[in-house]
Amino acid sequence: MVTTSKLMNSLLLASVCGIFFLAGYADGNSDRKFWSPYEDLNWSEIGHYDSEFHTHPNMGDYGGHDPHQTVDRYHEEGYKILTLAEHSSHIPHDHMNTIYPWTELSQIYERIKDVTHEGADGQTYAEIHNEPWEDRDPVELGMVSVEGNELSGHHHTISVFNLWSGHVDDELDSFDKIEELGGFAYFAHPGRYVERLGLTAHWYVDLYLRYDILIGQSVYNREDNHPGDRAFYDKIQHILGGAERPIWLYGEDDMHTERTLGWNRDVILLENFRPGSLHPDIQDGSAPDVMKALQNGYSYLWKPSEQYNKRAFNITDVEVEDHRVTLTVDNDDLVNEIRWRTHNPDTDDTETVHRGFSISESDVPDNSLFVRAEIEGSEGTIYTQPFYLTSE
């Protein structure tokens, strides 16, 4: 069961926090200004690097790509940052923690090839896989490799920049461990748990208030397994109080086979990209900068309209004045529409409040705490991180 008695104790606190943050705007106060997670970026020096943190390299009898084949396919598709994030339930914990580093994939395979997979009808890992694993060097490939797993004993959670793979049934145990190890995590496909278990926005709010290592949640899973995840993200962000506790949106391929590869690209915004990894035997490169970008929301999501579609346009500047946000996009002739979206507490739903490259504070309802932009073209749509409204 995902919900626990530990979590229920502080749901009232989350509700009170949401009411407190809303109170400052209930009287129609217009003395607000924008705060942007992008404000510290030097856009003239920024590069755009596609990433994927939710992949499953065939350790659960999926019939898909082995780890080295997964690396190769994402490299072929132009991704620069990648995590091989297997389900914790499929990790033989006596022999390994994560599929990392890539430079030791052949050694990891030798350790587990004759081990019986507990959930695969008595097959060994060698029988599950297509072929012996081959080493890959992220530096030679021009990529950043990120250590991680999909923790699956509780609410599925993508854990990155740490080796925790414990298959436990309590989220708090996992999050305490990730915090101890200096990593980060985001919630995978929350719609699954809203639909199956009836989890509420306040369940998530409680955990965000407890753990800074929780950086956000998925709004797209594969092509779009849970269409309500965008509005659910907006609702959670609103209850959290906007800039008081920012959380970031992500898309995830949740790749098990080729059919689910290439559906989402979290675009990490970095200066002076250098390949590498945080493993001690590999140069760091931009790996520390990727950590910082994930923590601070230096990213946006490219959602292709068709599988494998690469970005048709990029955000090249975000100008934030106190009362206005203006976006600049290259190849703007490929942009059909820009929608500014927010949570409306009166209707308890997401709505479009403005259209165009620029939005003023006065375009945002007084009871809204943020807006985010959706930049749509025929090849796909960019989803920005939220722009928050704060009191002057």
Rank of each mutant, 00 (worst) to 15 (best):
D330P: 12
G251P: 07
V335I: 12
I338G: 05
E321G: 04
V320G: 03
E319F: 01
K235R: 13
I239D: 07
N272I: 04
D363L: 11
I282E: 07
T316P: 03
V353F: 04
T328K: 12
S360M: 10
I315M: 06
E361Q: 15
N296S: 08
R245T: 13
D348W: 05
P246V: 09
N331H: 14
A231V: 10
G242V: 14
D266V: 13
T350N: 07
R230V: 14
A287D: 01
D317A: 10
E244L: 13
Y308C: 00
E351Y: 02
S305E: 12
I282Q: 04
V364M: 10
H343F: 14
G262I: 06
I247Y: 11
R274L: 08
R341H: 14
Y233V: 10
N272Q: 06
Y300I: 04
K292R: 11
H323D: 15
D363Y: 07
T347Y: 01
N309P: 02
I338T: 12
T352L: 04
L240D: 08
D254L: 12
S277G: 07
P280S: 01
F357M: 03
I236V: 11
R311I: 02
A231D: 09
I315P: 03
I359H: 05
R311T: 09
V329C: 15
G241I: 05
L270E: 01
D363G: 10
G241F: 04
T260F: 13
L278M: 09
Y300T: 08
V335R: 05
E258D: 15
Q295S: 13
A231N: 04
H256R: 14
V267C: 10
Y250T: 12
V353S: 01
T257E: 14
N344C: 14
P275D: 02
H238D: 06
S286C: 06
R341G: 07
S362C: 10
V325S: 04
E351A: 06
Y298M: 01
W248V: 13
R259H: 15
I359C: 03
E319V: 01
P288R: 02
L270A: 00
G242L: 12
R341T: 14
D289P: 13
A312Y: 00
F232P: 00
Q307K: 12
P304A: 08
I268D: 02
S362R: 13
K303E: 09
T260S: 15
L334R: 14
N309S: 05
V329L: 11
R245N: 14
V325H: 06
S299Q: 07
F232R: 06
S305F: 00
E351S: 07
D317R: 05
V320A: 05
E321Q: 09
V325G: 02
N331D: 11
H279T: 08
L334E: 15
D332M: 09
V329M: 10
R259S: 15
G262V: 08
V364L: 07
N296K: 10
L301T: 00
A293H: 11
Q295G: 08
L327A: 02
T257V: 15
I236M: 03
I315F: 07
G356Y: 01
N272C: 01
V320N: 03
R245K: 15
P246H: 12
D332K: 11
R311D: 02
R339W: 12
L301W: 01
